[in-house]
Design a protein around this nucleic acid. Structure first.
Lengths: 147, 147
DNA sequence: GCTTGACCTCAAGTCGGCTTGAAGTGGCAG
DNA sequence: CTGCCACTTCAAGCCGACTTGAGGTCAAGC
């Protein structure tokens, strides 16, 4: 069995060793053994890391991700939870769509004051509404992978 | 002209006074005057705050948002910039769509090991690609509104 | 057998976006 | 006039997700 040491995992995943150690500490991944001091990772970890990246992109915290995909990398949460997460993301998508539309409108609308443009206000109002979910306390923000 | 003091803005927007002061300091909003010590806000600030919420939901930092919509609340960047931001957001939307699809798949696919499911792997691979876009390495994280 | 260089641990630092706390101000109801 | 209480400022603290740095270990190549 060919294991990977942290440098190789880092090179192949683009994730820094310090972050990988951090993930291991957080229980998101696990090394199969040590070679001397050095962690040895199974190749599957690369796939797990993609999953983690995905979760992060969705705005989940490392803890949440750890909950979804155990250190073994296999998802085993109640299906309903995933649907719920997916719904949450879909809501986020709708908001982003509004934002995108709004930005394009702002770019194109010749009105002197956007605040008075009905289209603009309609767009913004639409953004405010999405489902009253707004009271929670924390939202994540995803951007793609940190280089 | 009827101005709002910070408590009223807070009540109407759901944003804490401390956050509003923070926004003012960051140049995202501005108070029109003071009544004694107290900031007086024009009612338009409520609309501006929606814009800000929108921007945050999109993952922009406060600085970026301040850049898009000045303290006057009026966007006055070069139109091309807005189109560019919109394109960026559209890209983000595509990524989130993949994630949402993946989560639903995970919830529904009966395969014993997702890692071996071709659909799953295809989705994950798709997610991995979106490549080098912003390369910035950091984006903010929105979870729902902080209560 | 000694150097090298990739790895190790642990503590502390960083950054964004606020929140919290202490100490002060001042408009307005009574 | 007095007291209240919402506001004010400023500094410090917090959280998540890492990064950085100091000091240490150790397998392998010369």
């Amino acid at each position: 069995m060919k294991f990977l040491d942290i440098g190789e995992v880092s090179a192949r995943s683009g994730i820094r060793p310090s972050a990988l150690r951090h993930y291991e500490e957080a229980g998101l991944i696990s090394s199969v053994s040590r070679h001397g001091l050095r962690r040895q990772f199974a190749p599957e970890v690369l796939l797990q890391l993609k999953l983690i990246a995905l979760g992060k992109a969705a705005g989940f915290s490392l803890d949440e991700i750890a909950g979804m995909f155990g250190a073994n990398g296999l998802p085993d949460l109640p299906r309903a939870t995933f649907h719920q997460k997916a719904d949450e993301i879909d809501r986020q998508i709708r908001e982003l769509t509004v934002l995108s539309d709004t930005l394009r409108h702002v770019a194109d609308c010749p009105a002197p004051s956007h605040m008075e443009c009905p289209t603009f206000r309609r767009l913004i109002d639409a953004a405010g509404k999405p489902g009253g979910t707004t009271g929670n306390g924390k939202k994540s923000k995803p951007r793609l992978a940190p280089s």
